[in-house]
Design a protein around this nucleic acid. Structure first.
Lengths: 237, 237
DNA sequence: CCGCTTACTGAATGGTTATTCAATAAAAGT
DNA sequence: ACTTTTATTGAATAACCATTCAGTAAGCGG
Protein backbone atom coordinates (compact mmCIF):
# COMPACT_ATOMS: atom_id res chain seq x y z
CA UNK A 1 0.00 0.00 0.00
CA UNK A 2 1.17 3.43 -0.82
CA UNK A 3 2.20 5.78 1.87
CA UNK A 4 1.29 9.39 1.35
CA UNK A 5 2.85 11.26 -1.48
CA UNK A 6 0.49 13.78 -0.02
CA UNK A 7 2.05 16.88 1.45
CA UNK A 8 1.89 16.82 5.18
CA UNK A 9 1.49 20.16 6.87
CA UNK A 10 4.19 21.53 9.10
CA UNK A 11 5.04 19.28 11.94
CA UNK A 12 7.25 21.61 13.81
CA UNK A 13 6.99 24.90 11.98
CA UNK A 14 10.23 26.73 11.72
CA UNK A 15 11.35 26.80 8.14
CA UNK A 16 11.98 29.67 5.87
CA UNK A 17 10.86 31.14 2.56
CA UNK A 18 7.95 29.66 0.57
CA UNK A 19 9.94 28.10 -2.28
CA UNK A 20 12.45 26.37 -0.07
CA UNK A 21 15.62 26.05 -2.01
CA UNK A 22 16.34 22.53 -2.96
CA UNK A 23 20.01 22.86 -2.29
CA UNK A 24 21.77 24.59 0.54
CA UNK A 25 25.28 24.89 1.83
CA UNK A 26 26.49 22.20 4.11
CA UNK A 27 26.46 24.42 7.19
CA UNK A 28 22.94 25.76 6.65
CA UNK A 29 21.52 22.29 6.31
CA UNK A 30 23.27 21.00 9.33
CA UNK A 31 21.92 23.80 11.44
CA UNK A 32 18.45 23.28 10.04
CA UNK A 33 18.59 19.62 10.93
CA UNK A 34 19.88 20.35 14.41
CA UNK A 35 16.95 22.69 14.94
CA UNK A 36 14.52 20.07 13.76
CA UNK A 37 16.15 17.69 16.22
CA UNK A 38 15.68 20.11 19.10
CA UNK A 39 12.06 20.53 18.07
CA UNK A 40 11.47 16.83 18.14
CA UNK A 41 13.30 16.30 21.42
CA UNK A 42 11.18 19.02 22.99
CA UNK A 43 7.96 17.68 21.57
CA UNK A 44 8.43 13.92 21.80
CA UNK A 45 11.35 13.36 24.11
CA UNK A 46 14.48 11.38 23.49
CA UNK A 47 13.06 7.91 23.18
CA UNK A 48 10.42 8.83 20.62
CA UNK A 49 12.64 10.98 18.43
CA UNK A 50 13.36 9.19 15.17
CA UNK A 51 15.33 10.21 12.15
CA UNK A 52 12.09 10.22 10.21
CA UNK A 53 10.75 12.83 12.64
CA UNK A 54 13.78 14.98 12.13
CA UNK A 55 13.76 14.83 8.37
CA UNK A 56 10.01 15.38 8.25
CA UNK A 57 10.40 18.33 10.57
CA UNK A 58 12.94 19.83 8.22
CA UNK A 59 10.76 18.88 5.24
CA UNK A 60 13.52 16.89 3.70
CA UNK A 61 13.95 13.30 2.71
CA UNK A 62 14.62 10.23 4.84
CA UNK A 63 18.27 9.79 4.05
CA UNK A 64 19.27 13.36 4.74
CA UNK A 65 20.46 12.95 8.31
CA UNK A 66 22.84 10.15 7.57
CA UNK A 67 24.11 12.13 4.63
CA UNK A 68 24.99 15.12 6.80
CA UNK A 69 25.73 13.52 10.16
CA UNK A 70 26.60 9.89 9.38
CA UNK A 71 24.56 8.53 12.28
CA UNK A 72 21.77 9.32 14.66
CA UNK A 73 24.15 9.06 17.57
CA UNK A 74 26.32 11.73 16.00
CA UNK A 75 23.38 14.00 15.23
CA UNK A 76 22.37 13.94 18.88
CA UNK A 77 25.89 14.59 20.04
CA UNK A 78 26.27 17.57 17.73
CA UNK A 79 22.91 18.86 18.85
CA UNK A 80 24.09 18.77 22.44
CA UNK A 81 27.26 20.56 21.40
CA UNK A 82 25.22 23.19 19.61
CA UNK A 83 23.04 23.85 22.63
CA UNK A 84 26.03 23.89 24.90
CA UNK A 85 27.74 26.52 22.74
CA UNK A 86 24.60 28.60 22.64
CA UNK A 87 24.36 28.47 26.42
CA UNK A 88 27.94 29.47 26.90
CA UNK A 89 27.82 32.30 24.40
CA UNK A 90 24.79 33.68 26.18
CA UNK A 91 26.22 33.94 29.67
CA UNK A 92 29.51 35.24 28.38
CA UNK A 93 27.69 37.99 26.50
CA UNK A 94 25.53 38.91 29.52
CA UNK A 95 28.65 38.94 31.63
CA UNK A 96 30.58 41.11 29.20
CA UNK A 97 27.89 43.74 28.97
CA UNK A 98 27.43 44.03 32.73
CA UNK A 99 28.98 46.74 34.90
CA UNK A 100 32.33 45.72 36.34
CA UNK A 101 31.43 45.70 40.02
CA UNK A 102 30.93 42.43 41.84
CA UNK A 103 27.21 42.75 42.40
CA UNK A 104 26.43 43.52 38.77
CA UNK A 105 28.67 40.73 37.55
CA UNK A 106 27.01 38.24 39.85
CA UNK A 107 23.57 39.42 38.83
CA UNK A 108 24.50 39.07 35.18
CA UNK A 109 25.81 35.54 35.61
CA UNK A 110 22.92 34.34 37.68
CA UNK A 111 20.30 35.98 35.51
CA UNK A 112 21.78 34.75 32.24
CA UNK A 113 20.35 31.27 32.74
CA UNK A 114 16.87 32.69 32.68
CA UNK A 115 17.45 34.99 29.75
CA UNK A 116 14.62 35.14 27.28
CA UNK A 117 16.94 34.06 24.50
CA UNK A 118 17.84 30.67 25.89
CA UNK A 119 15.23 29.95 28.50
CA UNK A 120 12.35 28.73 26.37
CA UNK A 121 10.22 25.62 26.88
CA UNK A 122 11.71 24.26 23.69
CA UNK A 123 15.30 24.66 24.79
CA UNK A 124 14.78 23.42 28.31
CA UNK A 125 12.85 20.34 27.31
CA UNK A 126 15.42 19.36 24.74
CA UNK A 127 18.17 19.99 27.22
CA UNK A 128 16.72 17.66 29.81
CA UNK A 129 15.94 15.02 27.24
CA UNK A 130 19.62 14.85 26.41
CA UNK A 131 20.70 15.32 30.01
CA UNK A 132 18.85 12.28 31.26
CA UNK A 133 20.70 10.14 28.77
CA UNK A 134 24.04 11.61 29.76
CA UNK A 135 24.33 9.23 32.69
CA UNK A 136 24.70 6.29 30.34
CA UNK A 137 26.64 8.08 27.59
CA UNK A 138 30.15 9.17 28.49
CA UNK A 139 30.42 11.51 25.50
CA UNK A 140 27.37 13.47 26.64
CA UNK A 141 28.48 13.50 30.21
CA UNK A 142 31.86 14.93 29.34
CA UNK A 143 30.30 17.71 27.32
CA UNK A 144 27.80 18.65 29.99
CA UNK A 145 30.39 18.52 32.70
CA UNK A 146 32.68 20.88 30.85
CA UNK A 147 29.86 23.29 30.21
CA UNK A 148 29.14 23.38 33.91
CA UNK A 149 32.71 23.68 35.05
CA UNK A 150 33.37 26.92 33.19
CA UNK A 151 30.27 28.63 34.42
CA UNK A 152 30.61 27.43 37.97
CA UNK A 153 34.22 28.52 38.02
CA UNK A 154 33.26 32.04 37.11
CA UNK A 155 30.48 32.05 39.65
CA UNK A 156 32.76 30.88 42.43
CA UNK A 157 35.26 33.56 41.52
CA UNK A 158 32.69 36.28 42.12
CA UNK A 159 31.26 34.71 45.24
CA UNK A 160 34.76 34.72 46.63
CA UNK A 161 35.22 38.34 45.62
CA UNK A 162 31.95 39.27 47.30
CA UNK A 163 33.03 37.55 50.47
CA UNK A 164 36.29 39.48 50.51
CA UNK A 165 34.51 42.76 49.92
CA UNK A 166 31.84 42.40 52.55
CA UNK A 167 33.24 39.86 54.98
CA UNK A 168 30.48 37.30 54.64
CA UNK A 169 30.88 34.16 56.70
CA UNK A 170 29.95 31.63 54.02
CA UNK A 171 32.08 29.17 52.11
CA UNK A 172 32.13 30.41 48.49
CA UNK A 173 32.19 26.90 47.04
CA UNK A 174 29.10 25.95 48.97
CA UNK A 175 27.22 29.09 48.06
CA UNK A 176 28.09 28.56 44.42
CA UNK A 177 26.81 25.01 44.62
CA UNK A 178 23.61 26.24 46.21
CA UNK A 179 22.96 28.94 43.64
CA UNK A 180 23.77 26.74 40.71
CA UNK A 181 21.64 23.91 41.99
CA UNK A 182 18.77 26.31 42.47
CA UNK A 183 19.04 27.47 38.88
CA UNK A 184 18.97 23.96 37.49
CA UNK A 185 16.09 23.12 39.74
CA UNK A 186 14.16 26.11 38.44
CA UNK A 187 14.79 24.95 34.90
CA UNK A 188 13.37 21.59 35.79
CA UNK A 189 10.34 23.25 37.28
CA UNK A 190 9.82 25.41 34.23
CA UNK A 191 9.84 22.27 32.16
CA UNK A 192 7.57 20.15 34.30
CA UNK A 193 4.92 22.70 35.07
CA UNK A 194 4.27 23.22 31.40
CA UNK A 195 3.55 26.92 31.43
CA UNK A 196 2.12 27.48 34.90
CA UNK A 197 5.49 28.48 36.16
CA UNK A 198 6.86 31.48 34.33
CA UNK A 199 10.35 32.61 33.56
CA UNK A 200 9.69 35.85 35.43
CA UNK A 201 8.63 33.98 38.56
CA UNK A 202 11.85 32.01 38.49
CA UNK A 203 13.72 35.27 38.13
CA UNK A 204 12.08 36.59 41.25
CA UNK A 205 13.15 33.52 43.19
CA UNK A 206 16.73 33.83 42.05
CA UNK A 207 16.87 37.51 42.91
CA UNK A 208 15.35 37.09 46.33
CA UNK A 209 18.03 34.53 47.08
CA UNK A 210 20.77 36.89 46.01
CA UNK A 211 19.31 39.50 48.29
CA UNK A 212 19.23 37.11 51.22
CA UNK A 213 22.62 35.49 50.81
CA UNK A 214 24.54 38.61 49.80
CA UNK A 215 22.76 41.39 51.70
CA UNK A 216 25.65 43.81 51.33
CA UNK A 217 25.58 43.52 47.57
CA UNK A 218 21.88 43.34 46.82
CA UNK A 219 18.63 44.82 48.05
CA UNK A 220 16.16 42.28 49.50
CA UNK A 221 14.52 42.21 46.07
CA UNK A 222 17.79 41.37 44.39
CA UNK A 223 18.75 44.66 42.78
CA UNK A 224 22.53 45.01 42.68
CA UNK A 225 24.01 47.68 44.93
CA UNK A 226 26.80 48.66 42.60
CA UNK A 227 28.52 50.90 45.13
CA UNK A 228 30.09 48.18 47.26
CA UNK A 229 33.18 48.20 45.09
CA UNK A 230 36.65 47.74 46.56
CA UNK A 231 36.42 50.06 49.49
CA UNK A 232 34.48 48.79 52.40
CA UNK A 233 35.93 45.57 53.69
CA UNK A 234 34.43 46.75 56.98
CA UNK A 235 31.82 45.06 59.11
CA UNK A 236 28.83 47.37 59.31
CA UNK A 237 26.97 48.30 56.20
CA UNK B 1 3.82 -2.93 52.72
CA UNK B 2 7.48 -3.73 53.00
CA UNK B 3 10.12 -2.80 50.54
CA UNK B 4 11.62 -5.73 48.73
CA UNK B 5 14.31 -6.82 51.10
CA UNK B 6 13.54 -10.38 50.22
CA UNK B 7 13.93 -10.20 46.50
CA UNK B 8 17.36 -10.09 45.05
CA UNK B 9 17.46 -7.67 42.19
CA UNK B 10 21.03 -8.03 41.18
CA UNK B 11 21.74 -7.18 37.60
CA UNK B 12 21.33 -9.69 34.86
CA UNK B 13 24.03 -11.69 36.51
CA UNK B 14 25.71 -14.98 36.34
CA UNK B 15 25.27 -17.68 38.93
CA UNK B 16 21.82 -18.72 39.94
CA UNK B 17 20.82 -18.60 43.57
CA UNK B 18 18.80 -21.43 45.10
CA UNK B 19 16.35 -22.82 42.57
CA UNK B 20 14.26 -19.67 42.42
CA UNK B 21 10.66 -20.51 42.85
CA UNK B 22 8.97 -20.91 39.54
CA UNK B 23 5.76 -19.36 40.65
CA UNK B 24 5.19 -16.38 42.83
CA UNK B 25 2.25 -14.34 43.93
CA UNK B 26 1.16 -11.62 41.60
CA UNK B 27 2.33 -8.81 43.86
CA UNK B 28 5.79 -10.24 44.45
CA UNK B 29 6.43 -10.66 40.76
CA UNK B 30 5.24 -7.20 39.94
CA UNK B 31 7.55 -5.68 42.50
CA UNK B 32 10.43 -7.79 41.25
CA UNK B 33 9.84 -6.61 37.72
CA UNK B 34 9.57 -2.99 38.79
CA UNK B 35 12.90 -3.31 40.52
CA UNK B 36 14.46 -4.79 37.42
CA UNK B 37 13.03 -1.85 35.49
CA UNK B 38 14.59 0.67 37.85
CA UNK B 39 17.91 -1.15 37.52
CA UNK B 40 17.78 -0.94 33.78
CA UNK B 41 16.68 2.69 33.72
CA UNK B 42 19.56 3.58 35.98
CA UNK B 43 22.08 1.60 34.00
CA UNK B 44 20.98 2.21 30.43
CA UNK B 45 18.60 5.12 30.49
CA UNK B 46 15.07 5.29 29.17
CA UNK B 47 15.72 4.93 25.49
CA UNK B 48 17.85 1.82 25.78
CA UNK B 49 15.64 0.02 28.27
CA UNK B 50 13.88 -2.88 26.58
CA UNK B 51 11.49 -5.47 27.88
CA UNK B 52 14.15 -8.07 27.19
CA UNK B 53 16.46 -6.20 29.56
CA UNK B 54 13.84 -6.19 32.24
CA UNK B 55 12.93 -9.85 31.98
CA UNK B 56 16.58 -10.86 31.79
CA UNK B 57 17.31 -8.70 34.83
CA UNK B 58 14.60 -10.54 36.72
CA UNK B 59 15.80 -13.86 35.28
CA UNK B 60 12.44 -14.60 33.81
CA UNK B 61 11.14 -15.21 30.36
CA UNK B 62 10.41 -12.79 27.57
CA UNK B 63 6.68 -12.68 27.78
CA UNK B 64 6.53 -12.06 31.52
CA UNK B 65 6.19 -8.30 31.46
CA UNK B 66 3.23 -8.23 29.13
CA UNK B 67 1.63 -10.91 31.25
CA UNK B 68 1.90 -8.85 34.43
CA UNK B 69 1.71 -5.31 33.09
CA UNK B 70 0.01 -5.62 29.70
CA UNK B 71 2.38 -3.18 28.03
CA UNK B 72 5.76 -1.55 28.35
CA UNK B 73 4.09 1.83 28.66
CA UNK B 74 2.16 0.59 31.66
CA UNK B 75 5.20 -0.97 33.28
CA UNK B 76 7.00 2.35 33.13
CA UNK B 77 4.02 4.20 34.52
CA UNK B 78 3.69 1.83 37.44
CA UNK B 79 7.40 2.08 38.05
CA UNK B 80 7.06 5.83 38.32
CA UNK B 81 4.15 5.37 40.68
CA UNK B 82 6.18 3.00 42.80
CA UNK B 83 9.07 5.42 43.08
CA UNK B 84 6.74 8.27 43.81
CA UNK B 85 5.14 6.35 46.67
CA UNK B 86 8.50 5.44 48.08
CA UNK B 87 9.54 9.09 47.99
CA UNK B 88 6.42 10.23 49.75
CA UNK B 89 6.56 7.55 52.40
CA UNK B 90 10.09 8.58 53.17
CA UNK B 91 9.54 12.25 53.80
CA UNK B 92 6.37 11.59 55.74
CA UNK B 93 8.25 9.20 58.00
CA UNK B 94 11.13 11.62 58.51
CA UNK B 95 8.62 14.34 59.26
CA UNK B 96 6.69 12.21 61.72
CA UNK B 97 9.74 11.25 63.73
CA UNK B 98 11.05 14.82 64.00
CA UNK B 99 10.58 17.07 67.03
CA UNK B 100 7.46 19.23 66.77
CA UNK B 101 9.12 22.64 66.64
CA UNK B 102 9.33 24.54 63.39
CA UNK B 103 13.08 24.31 62.93
CA UNK B 104 13.21 20.55 63.44
CA UNK B 105 10.25 20.01 61.14
CA UNK B 106 11.84 22.07 58.42
CA UNK B 107 15.14 20.29 58.83
CA UNK B 108 13.41 16.94 58.61
CA UNK B 109 11.53 17.87 55.43
CA UNK B 110 14.51 19.37 53.69
CA UNK B 111 16.86 16.60 54.70
CA UNK B 112 14.51 13.79 53.75
CA UNK B 113 15.31 14.23 50.05
CA UNK B 114 18.91 13.37 50.74
CA UNK B 115 18.16 10.49 53.03
CA UNK B 116 20.36 7.46 52.54
CA UNK B 117 17.33 5.32 51.91
CA UNK B 118 16.10 7.07 48.80
CA UNK B 119 19.03 9.11 47.61
CA UNK B 120 21.07 6.49 45.78
CA UNK B 121 22.62 6.72 42.33
CA UNK B 122 20.22 4.03 41.21
CA UNK B 123 17.11 5.85 42.37
CA UNK B 124 18.16 9.26 41.14
CA UNK B 125 19.19 8.06 37.71
CA UNK B 126 15.98 6.18 37.20
CA UNK B 127 14.00 9.13 38.44
CA UNK B 128 15.51 11.52 35.93
CA UNK B 129 15.22 9.02 33.13
CA UNK B 130 11.46 9.01 33.68
CA UNK B 131 11.30 12.72 34.45
CA UNK B 132 12.76 13.77 31.15
CA UNK B 133 10.01 11.89 29.37
CA UNK B 134 7.33 13.45 31.51
CA UNK B 135 7.17 16.51 29.30
CA UNK B 136 5.75 14.49 26.45
CA UNK B 137 3.67 12.10 28.54
CA UNK B 138 0.73 13.65 30.34
CA UNK B 139 0.26 10.66 32.61
CA UNK B 140 3.81 10.98 33.94
CA UNK B 141 3.51 14.70 34.28
CA UNK B 142 0.39 14.46 36.36
CA UNK B 143 1.97 11.96 38.71
CA UNK B 144 5.12 13.97 39.19
CA UNK B 145 3.22 17.17 39.68
CA UNK B 146 1.07 15.65 42.40
CA UNK B 147 4.08 14.26 44.16
CA UNK B 148 5.59 17.72 44.20
CA UNK B 149 2.48 19.55 45.26
CA UNK B 150 2.08 17.65 48.52
CA UNK B 151 5.65 18.07 49.57
CA UNK B 152 5.84 21.69 48.57
CA UNK B 153 2.63 22.43 50.39
CA UNK B 154 4.03 21.10 53.62
CA UNK B 155 7.25 22.99 53.10
CA UNK B 156 5.42 26.26 52.51
CA UNK B 157 3.36 25.71 55.62
CA UNK B 158 6.48 25.58 57.75
CA UNK B 159 8.22 28.44 56.00
CA UNK B 160 5.18 30.52 56.78
CA UNK B 161 5.24 29.38 60.38
CA UNK B 162 8.91 30.30 60.65
CA UNK B 163 8.19 33.72 59.26
CA UNK B 164 5.49 34.31 61.84
CA UNK B 165 7.72 33.14 64.65
CA UNK B 166 10.76 35.20 63.79
CA UNK B 167 9.44 38.03 61.67
CA UNK B 168 11.49 37.30 58.58
CA UNK B 169 10.88 39.60 55.62
CA UNK B 170 10.72 36.95 52.92
CA UNK B 171 7.79 35.67 50.92
CA UNK B 172 7.20 32.05 52.06
CA UNK B 173 6.15 30.90 48.59
CA UNK B 174 9.32 32.22 47.07
CA UNK B 175 11.56 30.74 49.71
CA UNK B 176 9.84 27.40 49.29
CA UNK B 177 10.42 27.56 45.58
CA UNK B 178 14.05 28.39 46.14
CA UNK B 179 14.68 25.57 48.58
CA UNK B 180 12.85 23.01 46.54
CA UNK B 181 14.59 24.02 43.35
CA UNK B 182 17.92 23.75 45.10
CA UNK B 183 17.11 20.23 46.22
CA UNK B 184 16.19 19.08 42.74
CA UNK B 185 19.27 20.75 41.36
CA UNK B 186 21.42 18.89 43.86
CA UNK B 187 19.85 15.63 42.77
CA UNK B 188 20.72 16.42 39.21
CA UNK B 189 24.26 17.15 40.22
CA UNK B 190 24.53 13.92 42.15
CA UNK B 191 23.46 12.10 39.05
CA UNK B 192 25.65 13.88 36.53
CA UNK B 193 28.86 13.93 38.49
CA UNK B 194 28.80 10.18 38.79
CA UNK B 195 30.22 9.80 42.26
CA UNK B 196 32.44 12.87 42.58
CA UNK B 197 29.70 14.71 44.31
CA UNK B 198 28.59 13.01 47.48
CA UNK B 199 25.32 12.92 49.30
CA UNK B 200 27.00 14.38 52.36
CA UNK B 201 28.30 17.36 50.38
CA UNK B 202 24.82 18.06 49.12
CA UNK B 203 23.60 17.88 52.69
CA UNK B 204 26.10 20.51 53.72
CA UNK B 205 24.88 22.81 50.98
CA UNK B 206 21.27 22.42 51.99
CA UNK B 207 22.05 23.04 55.65
CA UNK B 208 24.14 26.11 55.00
CA UNK B 209 21.24 27.56 53.07
CA UNK B 210 18.85 26.92 55.92
CA UNK B 211 21.26 28.69 58.23
CA UNK B 212 21.48 31.68 55.95
CA UNK B 213 17.83 32.06 55.07
CA UNK B 214 16.40 31.28 58.48
CA UNK B 215 19.06 32.58 60.88
CA UNK B 216 16.70 32.67 63.84
CA UNK B 217 15.90 28.98 63.46
CA UNK B 218 19.25 27.51 62.48
CA UNK B 219 22.91 27.94 63.28
CA UNK B 220 25.06 29.05 60.33
CA UNK B 221 25.91 25.36 59.82
CA UNK B 222 22.25 24.44 59.63
CA UNK B 223 21.65 22.84 63.03
CA UNK B 224 18.07 23.48 64.16
CA UNK B 225 17.64 25.82 67.13
CA UNK B 226 14.64 24.14 68.61
CA UNK B 227 14.08 26.83 71.20
CA UNK B 228 12.60 29.49 68.92
CA UNK B 229 9.10 28.25 69.60
CA UNK B 230 6.16 30.64 69.73
CA UNK B 231 7.53 33.37 71.88
CA UNK B 232 10.12 35.59 70.41
CA UNK B 233 8.82 37.60 67.52
CA UNK B 234 11.53 40.04 68.56
CA UNK B 235 14.51 41.29 66.65
CA UNK B 236 17.86 40.26 68.06
CA UNK B 237 18.49 36.76 69.33
C1' DC C 1 25.21 23.12 -24.27
C1' DC C 2 28.42 19.75 -21.85
C1' DG C 3 30.56 17.49 -18.37
C1' DC C 4 31.53 17.45 -13.43
C1' DT C 5 30.79 18.09 -8.69
C1' DT C 6 27.90 18.25 -4.95
C1' DA C 7 23.38 17.91 -2.55
C1' DC C 8 19.71 15.27 -2.11
C1' DT C 9 16.16 11.43 -2.62
C1' DG C 10 13.48 7.34 -1.29
C1' DA C 11 12.98 2.46 -1.92
C1' DA C 12 15.29 -1.62 -0.14
C1' DT C 13 17.75 -3.94 3.69
C1' DG C 14 18.48 -5.92 7.94
C1' DG C 15 18.42 -5.63 12.69
C1' DT C 16 15.76 -4.73 16.91
C1' DT C 17 11.80 -4.91 19.70
C1' DA C 18 6.95 -5.08 21.72
C1' DT C 19 3.35 -8.08 21.66
C1' DT C 20 0.75 -12.39 21.03
C1' DC C 21 -0.52 -16.97 22.06
C1' DA C 22 -0.49 -21.95 22.09
C1' DA C 23 1.72 -25.04 25.03
C1' DT C 24 3.28 -26.30 29.64
C1' DA C 25 3.45 -26.80 34.45
C1' DA C 26 2.67 -25.74 39.14
C1' DA C 27 -0.81 -24.96 42.61
C1' DA C 28 -5.51 -25.16 44.50
C1' DG C 29 -9.86 -26.97 44.72
C1' DT C 30 -12.88 -31.14 44.67
C1' DA D 1 -7.31 -39.13 42.03
C1' DC D 2 -8.47 -35.50 38.33
C1' DT D 3 -10.26 -30.86 37.22
C1' DT D 4 -9.69 -26.07 37.22
C1' DT D 5 -7.30 -22.13 37.80
C1' DT D 6 -3.33 -19.47 37.49
C1' DA D 7 1.53 -18.46 36.35
C1' DT D 8 5.04 -18.89 33.09
C1' DT D 9 7.44 -19.85 28.85
C1' DG D 10 9.49 -18.93 24.29
C1' DA D 11 8.86 -19.19 19.48
C1' DA D 12 6.35 -16.65 15.96
C1' DT D 13 4.66 -12.24 14.35
C1' DA D 14 4.44 -7.75 12.89
C1' DA D 15 5.87 -3.15 13.39
C1' DC D 16 9.34 0.04 13.44
C1' DC D 17 13.56 2.20 12.47
C1' DA D 18 18.56 3.37 11.29
C1' DT D 19 21.36 2.86 7.57
C1' DT D 20 22.64 2.11 2.71
C1' DC D 21 23.04 3.21 -1.99
C1' DA D 22 21.85 3.57 -6.74
C1' DG D 23 19.84 7.05 -8.95
C1' DT D 24 18.30 12.05 -9.77
C1' DA D 25 18.94 16.77 -10.28
C1' DA D 26 20.74 21.31 -9.20
C1' DG D 27 24.56 24.39 -9.64
C1' DC D 28 28.79 25.68 -12.01
C1' DG D 29 32.87 26.34 -14.88
C1' DG D 30 33.71 25.98 -19.37
Amino acid sequence: MERGAILQHDEEGKTDAPPARRRESREKRREQLINATIDSLAKRGYAATTLANVSDGAKLSRGIVNFHFDSKENLLLETLQYMSDEYQENWKARYAESAPDTASRLAALVTADLDRRICTPRTISAWFALMAEAKSRPAYQKLVWERDAKYRGRLTEYCRKAKEEAGYAFDPEIVTAAIYAMQEGLWLRLMLSGGDYKRTTALKVVKEMLGTVLPKHFTPEGTPLSHASKRNTGRKQ
